[in-house]
Design a protein around this nucleic acid. Structure first.
Lengths: 336, 336
DNA sequence: CTTCGCGTATAACCATGTGTTATATAGGCG
DNA sequence: CGCCTATATAACACATGGTTATACGCGAAG
């Protein structure tokens, strides 16, 4: 058995059981791949694939098992290479991150600016997508880090590091009646106006809708968008009252919009950063995590490296109170 | 990177950093091993070992990490081979078991007889030793199954399948005064006589001594042995009253010895069968477990295969009441 | 049924790599 | 300083993996 053979095997599987396609992807010839697959099957003494004529048609039960373990092998080999680079070229490598709009637009810019300063030779890849798309990228092992909010079950195969918590903010035009309210805002107040908010996707189905329902209110959601920028645009147009993540409050908005505190009206959300449990965290990856979640102590960070399941992770951070991230006024930059 | 190189690396480590010895163990030449190690170090771009002149002197921190992961790789490769055999030669292979005297002498014979009948082509290796020796063999990856009682902490890196529970039996000469007792035996009764029992090793320090102490009694232990046969010998000689595991009661003993029930006098012990969490359980291994612990259902057995940590294991068997194994009268064979 | 196209297996050949033997070399030790 | 042990180096033999060219099997289309 050779690592090459396992690599070829996985390439075949990942290319729809098409040996020719796998060979192309591997920058080698089709007969070479065919030959190695044959040798592997001969050595193991079993068929890994079912055939239809000469073409591969499916994976045998035995094949499933072998493939599963071959992935572990290749991952560990990758980890060996990775840690070797980490010892020799501590500041070089690549980091792929998949995240949602809110993170990419409002939270990550500062983190990434600092990260790039500290690690100019780490090539960064940032992918924006929905929770589902992020989950897909994770499962395809195409990214190193996923950053998202809620929906833990969608990412059950990741180790999640809780990073910060946040509330909602209510965005209205500066002259809106709600800005003249002389008491704390209530859900009932909001229910009086047409609302503009996120597509109900993350955090289970609409924790927002649930919050209204719990008080016997029926919100009038006139528009839903994927991101806060779109929401603000429609709020500016007077279409309704915007409900966005507190991080999305931008100081530059203050000239025509007002952001009202909605703390307590809706359940607090937790944003986490996650990674596959079988990858090796390189030095700069740990540093990225700490930049993203600065409340994590050096010891916690070091321990994180050894953790292999979510229960341990939760235990590690169970004591710590997560920071609550706001928007413009209590911006993390100003606090620092 | 080649599997061969990782194999050589581990062989070097496992042969005290002696390349020549590693080469001999691998049935190959010393220059070949040297060369591959060099190639591996060059590819990874780091020193895996510290050198004193030309000889290897120690492992670098980077080396430690690489070695650790190389072991995972080789184990998974072994598992692939193993499952391939399992599909093709379901009834062939080898099974190494390490266990204590009591198991080897009184419990395993029946199990092994049946196992050999069912799998005549599986070569069996049985090693007897103390808990510590068994733990060593486990850690050296020299055995497949460990069977022992208590001392879970000594085997924390194994997955333990609880198998059965047992009480103690009191062994006395047939004409001993205790045989004429017309009530249930008490610890106070035992404390009246000199005692012969096991070396206090397993199950924490002397659950036996503790049981007496809890009732304010001081037992007079005149002799301790490693196994029940020795104990019986001294009981026959009239040296004292024997306390042994209930499994050690042998019907053949009845002509000159009497076995008195000690249920309730001492805490019940649990015997388990354990294996490293990273090995692949072959079909015949599962069957062995079931022969040893027949109360395990087929579904439980199948689930066992997927389990990777002790918490899951304990959960799987939390509902089931373990059988209590006796000696001669309620022998498992007669019950069956 | 025939033909075409796609994909895989086989064959012959070549380049690279791995292991072998022989030998040089470095350190430890008395 | 010389012997012993262990590793590195060199030169060579041969096994292995990859390449190109080509044959073959199946399904789709006519």
């Amino acid at each position: 058995m050779k690592l090459q053979q396992l690599k070829y095997l996985l390439a075949i599987v990942d290319n729809g059981l098409n040996i020719t396609a796998a060979a192309e992807r591997l920058y080698t010839s089709q007969p070479g791949v065919s030959k190695q697959l044959k040798l592997l099957e001969e050595e193991l003494g079993l068929q890994l694939f079912t055939r239809k004529g000469k073409s591969l048609d499916g994976v045998t039960p035995a094949g499933e098992q072998v493939i599963e373990r071959a992935r572990v092998v290749m991952q560990e080999v990758e980890n060996i290479r990775s840690l070797a680079s980490d010892f020799y070229h501590e500041e070089e490598g690549s980091l792929s991150i998949a995240t949602t709009h809110t993170q990419a637009r409002y939270v990550l810019p500062d983190v990434i600016r600092e990260f790039r300063e500290r690690f100019p030779n780490v090539s960064l890849n940032l992918h924006q997508g929905t929770s589902e798309q992020i989950a897909d990228m994770v499962n395809a092992n195409a990214i190193d880090f996923a950053i998202a909010t809620g929906s833990r079950d969608l990412f059950s195969n990741l180790l999640l590091v809780p990073s910060y918590r946040w509330d909602r903010k209510i965005i209205v035009p500066r002259d809106h009646p709600l800005t003249r309210l002389d008491r704390k805002l209530t859900l009932a107040d909001l229910a009086e106006y047409p609302l503009v908010t996120y597509v109900f996707s993350f955090g289970g189905q609409s924790s927002l809708k649930r919050a209204f329902a719990d008080e016997g209110l029926e919100p009038d959601v006139v528009f839903t968008a994927r991101d806060a920028d779109v929401i603000k645009t429609y709020v500016r147009m007077g279409l309704g009252v915007g409900i966005v993540a507190s991080m999305a409050e931008d100081c530059a908005d203050q000239k025509d919009l007002a952001a009202l505190d909605a703390e307590g009206l809706f359940p607090r959300s937790t944003t986490w950063i996650g990674y596959r449990r079988d990858i090796l965290l390189r030095r700069y990856m740990l540093d990225f995590i700490q930049l993203f979640a600065p409340h994590i102590s050096a010891e916690q960070l070091e321990k994180t490296r050894q953790i292999r399941n979510q229960a341990e992770m939760d235990k590690l951070f169970s004591g710590a109170e997560l920071p609550v991230r706001g928007g413009c006024s209590d911006d993390i930059n100003e606090a620092a």
